[in-house]
Design a protein around this nucleic acid. Structure first.
Lengths: 305, 305
DNA sequence: ACTAACTGTGAGAGCGCTCTCACAAGATGA
DNA sequence: TCATCTTGTGAGAGCGCTCTCACAGTTAGT
């Protein structure tokens, strides 16, 4: 032991990995070819922070596979699915139909998704929140505030979470005996630009409230409302989703559905490592709680910074 | 070749690494124990995006070492300095005096710093911008606008970039024959909270302009000014640094010094890989250009979104 | 005192690659 | 035709670990 200390001996991890067939490395893939990653959105960075923390806590290392990757980038697919490099993979925001999904499924390398997958749900480990219920709570909040023409700007509908939030929106309206007006639903993406464009488009149908699929989208809505001369919350109530930092920087402060983004990342990493180490059997599907955070953008009670 | 294709053969990278003594993995360390990482600041995510892109372009993989790490976390230090795991390391925002610095220096593993190091400058590869000159340009801009009491809220002065921006601020004042008033200099950190507190503190000395060490800091200044009833830019001109996305979300839009953050990350990765592969000899120090971006927060010409 | 069980140490195989070297087979020039 | 050079193929060593197994040394039980 003292020799190890004095000589500063570093075990050769490649040699160890060769015989144990474990690299003690996991990967985090965010295979989006939209610029939602890192651009105007702290959702993915927060996710990553959670993963990073939990991964190092368990003495694993975290490989990052991010950036704008072409769907058919064979080189990337080959490398990311190399089970000799990584013991497992976390995949976030995977768009339905992405080839990575099929690759991983018949590769046998354990992987955990963040967000509910749209296919093979009974075979996939994932961690997410109850987006349907959360979408319902958000919409119900707007209803309870007396709003009559409640619009929704969705996220990318090839992502389970976006579908579920839309589902929740519809469910809340139906439970309140309200009609579902297709004119008040804008199919967007998880970006500020989509929120901005969505609001400009919806304006002709005179909504008095908008449930935005994410805080980033809501920021775009706020800007569009400002340009349209609509006062928030008097003329237009706006509710977001995520409760990332922009919700606390906006004017007015954003009412939103808080989801524990950092914890999602951390849980995914812990789950994956448990799976790798054989400590867990069967398909694991973790649903984390959400919470309605009331601030200024819907009227009602105002909670400070 | 056809057999490889049919059998979907994956070479065992651990075995390869064992004999070649190359893992084709590089690390990215952001060893900050402040919460500037990922919290309200897209600087580091952007940096990471640049690194990630360049790394995969060169067919390497990127290990992420981020999060709030205790200075004396031996486990972390041991793992991050394991040269069998990584061929090299990029270190961003390393605070002066951090033990990682000494570790790396006598380890022999190639590493590239982002930001100018405060010690052993002639032995360290790094990539940064000319912060002195940029700080001078920012301050000079405020002077040319007729501002009389120009304050500066610095970043963490244990980081070279923060020191250099302060240096540039002082240089501009001196060249203009202005006195340097210590009351108008607030030693802060690269965070929104520091900007907010700095501005509240500086208010007693009645500045009519603030050069903030980063856009994030400037956002904090903007909020404090709002609370103090100061109108930006009429009562107070504010200039930031970075030109990250918050500069385009603020109200008023932020005048700032743009630095190519993504390119910094990308260049660092490319440089490191060139170093690893022996394609480059001698100490490499890359200075990228900056640019004054004039928007609304200093008055003068206003450029739209 | 003899056997049975436990503890510690050392030798050796093998993980799946890369790299070198020997040798065979084919191409080139006198 | 023979010597030289080029190209291709196959065998074998070795990278630095982990794991098993044998054997020596020690302790416990009858």
């Amino acid at each position: 032991m003292s020799v190890i200390e004095v000589e500063n001996f570093q075990p050769n991890l490649a040699a160890r990995a060769l015989v144990t067939r474990r690299s003690e490395i996991i990967g985090a893939a965010i295979p989006t070819n939209e610029n939602i990653f890192f651009a105007d959105n702290s959702y993915h960075p927060m996710l990553l922070a959670g993963m990073s923390e939990a991964t190092h806590e368990r003495d694993y290392a975290l490989l990052l596979w991010a950036g704008e990757v072409a769907f058919d980038d064979k080189r990337w697919l080959r490398k990311i699915s190399n089970k000799h490099l990584m013991d497992g993979l976390i995949v976030a925001s995977l768009v339905d139909g992405h080839p990575l999904f099929a690759y991983l499924l018949n590769l046998g390398m354990p992987f955990v998704m963040i967000d509910r997958p749209l296919r093979d749900q009974d075979r996939i480990h994932y961690v997410t929140v109850d987006n349907v219920q959360a979408g319902e709570v958000a919409t119900q909040h707007l209803i309870s505030l007396g709003r009559q023409r409640i619009a929704h700007i969705s996220g990318h509908l090839d992502i389970g979470d976006a579908q579920d939030r839309l589902k929740g929106y519809k469910a809340a309206l139906q439970k309140a005996g309200r009609p579902i007006d297709p004119d008040l639903i804008y199919e967007g993406k998880f970006s500020r630009v989509a929120g901005y464009e969505g609001m400009l488009h919806l304006a002709q149908h005179k909504p008095d409230a908008v449930f935005a699929a994410s805080d980033t989208v809501a920021i775009g809505v706020l800007r569009a409302a400002h340009e349209l001369g609509l006062h928030v919350p008097d003329d237009l109530a706006v509710i977001g989703f995520d409760d990332i930092d922009v919700a606390l920087q906006s004017n007015p402060l954003l009412t939103t559905i808080r989801q524990p983004v950092r914890e999602k990342g951390a849980k995914a990493a812990e789950l994956l490592i448990d799976l790798i180490e054989g400590r867990l059997q069967g398909i694991q599907q973790i649903i984390l709680p959400t919470e309605l955070v009331i601030r200024q953008s819907c009227g009602g009670i105002s909670v400070g910074v």
